[in-house]
């Protein structure tokens, strides 16, 4: 799940274009997220001002298996 900080968002659409699942839509100053988000985090990297944060909600992190 992606959390948006409205205070930082420039409404530029960098996240929209970077999203491989088309889970974000920008209309003027409104950024809509739909359920297709896969938590890949690309939008977080694409955002030039750090307005997006990835909150992991799907599944639990499995500890690495060591030999």
């Amino acid at each position: 799940m992606i959390e948006l900080n409205d205070d930082k968002c420039m409404h530029c659409g960098a996240c929209v274009g970077a999203c491989p699942a088309n889970a974000i839509y920008l209309n003027e100053v409104i950024l809509d997220f739909n359920d297709d988000c896969t938590d890949c985090g690309l939008c977080v990297k694409a955002c030039p001002v750090g307005a997006l944060t990835l909150i992991r909600t799907r599944g639990l992190k499995v500890p690495a298996v060591t030999a």
């Binding site: 659409g13 274009g17 970077a18 088309n22």
Partner: peptide, 25 residues
Amino acid sequence: GFESQVARWAGFNTNLKTRDTTSNL
């Protein structure tokens, strides 16, 4: 534009690799 919806609706694969995308300010 960069975030084209028409391209996606029409079924074009417009997904970009991270090495082919830039973040700009």
